[in-house]
Design a protein around this nucleic acid. Structure first.
Lengths: 234, 234
DNA sequence: TATTTTATCTCGGTC
DNA sequence: GACCGAGGTAAAATA
């Protein structure tokens, strides 16, 4: 990573045309080849930038040209360099986001066994007319070897899983609506419901259980680590 | 602006919880009190940040705490500082997005009737694979009441408008490329072209009219004031 | 100042 | 590679 503080003007010609009049700014050149131009305000957004992959060419007359594959160009006219330093940062281990619904869904989808032995994912974001169900999965009831009888052989039962950071009455109502739709599909029915959340409001639990919806408290550390058999629903 | 290169770990507790394991990163502290944490990739986006207004508190045991009004916190544990410098940047004059053209676009978008009675804006900066079209709009041909016939009723026709301060051959070529792309979209086609500029180079006009592109000279004062019906295209 | 719309959105996931 | 949706969206335009 190279940090340059310089008085410069910048012209961008790409998806739009833009110009930065002369001023002192930070030029942030990253190891991935990207460059961004920062003013002394707005934490998040650079004034201008070029995303990788792109190449920086410094010509002797203090003209920097950053070009990407699409031919977009960032032209930086350097008037005075006030600071210039380079630093070796190495690869970043990256951000770990906790407790986001999407993340819980991801983790749970990867660890279907938390729901029960032999449970398998059908798909995440299973589409219905009223929106996607977080997770649709199957239990193992159809895979059990049984003695041949005249009765209909058992088949895997489907389950719709609604995931929340904190489950409330609203979540139960939402899952109930999904179940109503899913159970109209004769290739899926009967479909059971599971309400999975890091915490479940007492009234939500009461309503869910009253409607035959199973409740599962998700332990974040457990989802990331090894599941404990004794905590399984079945 | 203060630039710190440090080995650190970061925890964010706010709208979500997030954690950055120990690594060497750039801490970018801006004059507006904001802080952002950058790795050596992803030009645009910091790994983590706190937007202004917020306050940074450095405690003696190498713990930085950034807090905003909503009580969200960024906690940075500094393990080793490799670089620390401060720079006076002053106020930035800010980005100019193609000043005049943008202003003309704004004015014209507000006064679609300059193009013709009943013309309506679809959107400015209409995106295409090869860049945004200045203005996409519809004429009034579909809204005219007609005697019932067996023929397909007329529907509004789309128009792509390219705006320039001074239109040259390049502008015609640009608009031609946009039209080619837009006409591949069956929900839009047929899309007509309008070249609108404060002045139009003779060769540009010749080429445009040869390609069936309409030319419109924009009068800046007229756009700001009352349009004159006799100047309309239709 | 509060709300709505935009973005060179970015980023991830699915088809 | 496309398409779609979420984001600690952020930032700009608007009421």
């Amino acid at each position: 990573m190279r940090l340059v503080i310089a008085r410069c003007s910048v012209d961008y010609a790409g998806r739009l045309s833009a110009h930065l009049p002369s001023a002192t700014r930070l030029l942030l050149i990253k190891a991935d080849g990207s460059l961004s131009v920062h003013a002394d305000d707005r934490a998040y957004k650079p004034l201008n930038w070029m995303s990788p992959p792109c190449s920086l060419k410094e010509t002797e007359d203090n003209l920097w040209t950053v070009t990407n594959k699409a031919g977009e160009q960032l032209i930086i006219t350097i008037e005075e360099i006030l600071h210039d330093s380079s630093h070796e940062l190495g690869v970043d281990p990256g951000l770990i986001k906790d407790g986001v619904e999407a993340h819980l869904q991801e983790l749970l989808a990867d660890r279907m066994e938390v729901l029960g032995d032999g449970w398998t994912l059908v798909r995440r974001e299973y589409p219905t007319a009223i929106g996607p169900v977080d997770i649709l999965c199957r239990d193992s009831s159809g895979t059990v070897l049984t003695v041949e009888t005249d009765s209909v052989p058992p088949r895997p039962r489907h389950w719709a899983v609604e995931i929340k950071r904190r489950a409330t009455i609203d979540g139960v109502e939402q899952l109930t609506r999904y179940l109503e739709y899913l159970n109209r599909d004769t290739t899926l029915a009967p479909v059971g419901g599971v309400l999975a959340a890091q915490s479940i409001a007492p009234q939500a639990r009461t309503l869910a259980e009253d409607r035959g919806i199973r409740c599962l408290v998700l332990d974040y550390d457990e989802l990331r680590g090894i599941d404990k058999a004794e905590d399984r629903l079945f």
